[in-house]
């Protein structure tokens, strides 16, 4: 079993979801700015990392958690992975979760400014504002994934 969180650039909402799932972030309180930026890969990956899966950590039962950026093609990872499982005869199951429904306009704007335009100092305050606002939604998404794991 593998868990893959994916979003547009694989550097904001998917990183937060993976960090929550692997226990790097406390779900009971909204993280501080320093806590957000101490997370590996948070607002650091560039367009050259799109499509590259990175392991973020593992759960206690050794289930690895990955992050992935896939531009605006939300359904591409699950479709391609299903076809490849058939081509290569891979039986292993994985849960692929799109984290973009949790995004808000602040995160989108901040991400665009910071990652696309390279205006990091301008984009980051928006990212933090958005990440704080979206934090509960991301926690709920992770809880839903954890419930799926139990099934």
């Amino acid at each position: 079993m593998k868990i893959i969180y994916h979003c547009y650039g694989g550097t904001h909402s998917s990183v937060l979801a993976a960090a929550i799932h692997t226990g790097r972030l406390d779900t009971t309180k909204i993280p501080s700015t320093a806590e957000f930026f101490s997370l590996p890969f948070f607002d650091t990956r560039s367009s050259s990392d799109i499509g590259i899966i990175v392991q973020y950590g593992s759960l206690q039962n050794n289930i690895p958690v990955f992050i992935l950026g896939r531009k605006g093609y939300c359904t591409a990872p699950s479709k391609i992975f299903n076809w490849l499982a058939e081509i290569f005869g891979v039986k292993e199951k994985y849960i692929i979760i799109d984290t973009t429904p949790t995004l808000n306009w602040q995160m989108k704007l901040g991400g665009y400014l910071s990652r696309r335009l390279g205006l990091i100092r301008l984009g980051r305050p928006f990212i933090i504002w958005g990440a704080r606002r979206a934090f509960k939604d991301i926690v709920n998404l992770v809880l839903a994934t954890q419930r799926r794991l139990l099934l």
């Binding site: 499509g51 990955f66 591409a76 990872p77 479709k79 391609i80 992975f81 290569f88």
Partner: peptide
């Protein structure tokens, strides 16, 4: 020989295939 078509960026498709193979030690 296989064919795979999907209306996405072809570089993304290629990278996803390569990432998947790496993930499964292919």
């Amino acid at each position: 020989v296989y064919a795979l078509w999907l209306n996405t960026d072809m570089l993304l498709t290629r990278r996803l295939i390569m990432s998947y193979c790496e993930l499964h030690n292919i």
